[in-house]
């Protein structure tokens, strides 16, 4: 048990690990929080499925620098995200905007869920039908007898 806990705690520490140890000074704590949030939300383009915060790739370092510079220059979060999207496309965002090219990405899982629900409902209904249709009159008689016997035994 103790060993399991140690192993689990290792995984927890891994998920919060950030690749970069960079010294960046901010004018306020709010700026620093914004910086941290932005580099969490922006994708590192050269590494599959890592954000800027988690990557040590050269491009990720440059883009972190760019985000930092823009925050210090007084740009808003939207301006910074716009800057990235006009250069690298929606792919740079971990939460791409909802539009014609991305609607399947957003709606897709719900469509699959709906299909799954329909299949499940049909399956349940069909099973009910099967139970009802296989009971012949003969079966019903037998069932009644059995139930009656049961009741008498209970008395």
């Amino acid at each position: 048990m103790k060993r399991l806990l140690i192993i689990l705690s290792l995984f927890i520490s891994l998920t919060t690990l950030e690749a970069a140890v960079e010294v960046k000074t901010f004018e306020s704590q709010q700026q620093e929080l914004r910086y941290k949030k932005l580099i969490e939300e922006l994708r590192c383009l050269v590494c599959q499925n890592q954000n800027l915060a988690g990557s040590d790739a050269g491009l990720a370092q440059d883009l972190r620098k760019q985000v930092y510079k823009m925050i210090r220059a007084g740009n808003s979060d939207d301006e910074i995200l716009d800057f990235m999207v006009t250069r690298y496309g929606d792919f740079v965002l971990y939460r791409p905007p909802f539009k014609a090219t991305t609607f399947l990405l957003w709606i897709g899982p719900f469509i699959i869920l709906a299909i799954g629900m329909l299949v499940l409902i049909r399956f349940i209904r069909q099973r009910k039908n099967v139970v009802i249709t296989t009971l012949t009159n003969n079966d019903k008689e037998k069932l009644k007898q059995l139930l009656d016997e049961d009741k008498e035994q209970d008395k």
């Binding site: 383009l45 491009l59 440059d62 883009l63 760019q66 250069r87 690298y88 496309g89």
Partner: peptide, 11 residues
Amino acid sequence: GLIGIEWGVYG
């Protein structure tokens, strides 16, 4: 690499 960023260079 600043102009690279301007041109969206990533690879």
